[in-house]
């Protein structure tokens, strides 16, 4: 190595990874923190929707974007989080925060078991998508069939008798900040992953498993790690969302609509980018608002989502973020 070290000094150092990007992100965060103080309830609700989809899709983006494994069963982990906290609270009176942590652990364990089978037997691409979707559908049917978990009607979350933040029953403004916190955590984690060993190894797997193996990466292990992280992040967002709605039921949490909708912000914004899901969630939320104004028939949204997914996959597979980041100096992946 001594020969190598001798030439090292001559190499120009790359610019520090996006100081400008960091400043822009901080500015964006300040705006997001101030936002609820100046807007109507309508805009606050829109803000919550955006942050909810950003964080949820951001959690999917770890396995779907960074690792390139197109999961269609992500709703399952989201629902596991929602059901864990709602069930533990309504049946046993466990604080929601405890249920949220339990839900995250259960989702992670579930991902570990399912992922181990799926990745060991090398289910790729469409097979992976269909396999994960099937897993989610089985859980949805089970949740609907078991009266123990509320059956098809789901579980209404009983109103708390006392004020206790551990029960996580908040005003919309507080939910806005909870989802903002989740968004910040997931974007920061994604940016960290992208810049470090784990991210580059996932990128190698995403591009070519043969090459990845040739440089010492075990695709099974790395994909499993990404899957478990994705699941563990989706579950707490399920808890938050169920507290926001004050109920859980199979179609809202396990449904096909959610399974596809969670994929969209990342695909629209940019797969495997930290800010892609945010960009995609903003675009998607406003697109849905506008289409509601022109009063689409129910069921049309699933069709519209499918169409969007196809259009972006074919015409703009890297999403909108690369277009935007070209205009922002210092912003990287």
């Amino acid at each position: 190595m001594s020969e190598l070290t001798a030439t090292a000094g001559r190499q120009a150092v790359r610019p520090a990874a996006g100081t400008t990007g960091l400043v822009l992100a901080a500015l964006l965060l300040v705006l997001a923190i101030l936002f609820p103080m100046f807007v109507s309830r309508y805009w606050l609700a829109l803000g919550i929707t955006v942050l909810f989809w950003t964080s949820f899709s951001g959690s999917w983006n770890i396995i779907g974007g960074y690792a390139g494994q197109f999961s269609l069963g992500h709703a399952a982990f989201f629902a596991i989080g929602a059901y864990s906290s709602a069930w533990l609270y309504s049946v046993f009176g466990f604080p929601t925060l405890v249920g949220m942590i339990v839900g995250s652990a259960v989702a992670a364990l579930m991902a570990l078991c399912i992922g181990w089978i799926i990745f060991r037997y090398k289910l790729h691409g469409t097979y992976f998508a269909i396999g994960t979707l099937a897993m989610s559908e089985v859980l949805r049917v089970l949740a609907g069939a078991l009266p123990w978990f509320g059956g098809n009607g789901g579980i209404p979350i009983p109103l708390a008798q006392e004020r206790n933040w551990l029960l996580m029953q908040f005003q919309p403004m507080a939910f806005y900040y909870m989802f903002l916190a989740a968004t910040v955590v997931i974007i920061a984690l994604s940016a960290w992953i992208a810049r470090n060993r784990f991210g580059y190894q996932l990128a190698a797997i995403r591009d070519s498993e043969d090459v990845a193996e040739s440089i010492g990466i075990s695709p099974t292990r790395l994909k499993l790690a990404a899957y478990v992280i994705s699941a563990a992040l989706a579950a707490p967002i399920g808890t938050l969302y169920s507290q926001y709605l004050m109920f859980v039921d199979p179609p809202t949490f396990f449904g096909l609509l959610v399974a596809i909708q969670v994929v969209l912000p990342a695909v629209i914004g940019g797969l495997g980018t930290a800010f892609g899901p945010l960009l995609g969630a903003i675009v998607l939320t406003f697109a849905i608002e506008l289409s509601d104004r022109v009063a689409l028939r129910p069921g049309a949204s699933l069709l519209a989502y499918g169409a969007m997914l196809m259009v972006f996959s074919v015409l703009l597979p890297r999403g909108l973020w690369p277009l935007l980041s070209k205009m922002l100096p210092g912003a990287t992946r």
């Binding site: 190598l4 090292a8 190499q11 470090n196 060993r197 580059y200 190894q201 190698a204 440089i215 010492g216």
Partner: peptide, 24 residues
Amino acid sequence: LAGAFARIRDRSEAGRLAHETLNF
């Protein structure tokens, strides 16, 4: 860099090896 991560966990250290190898 992806190759350098085989034996090096630290990002800046791996980056250094990657640059040295590119140079080489």
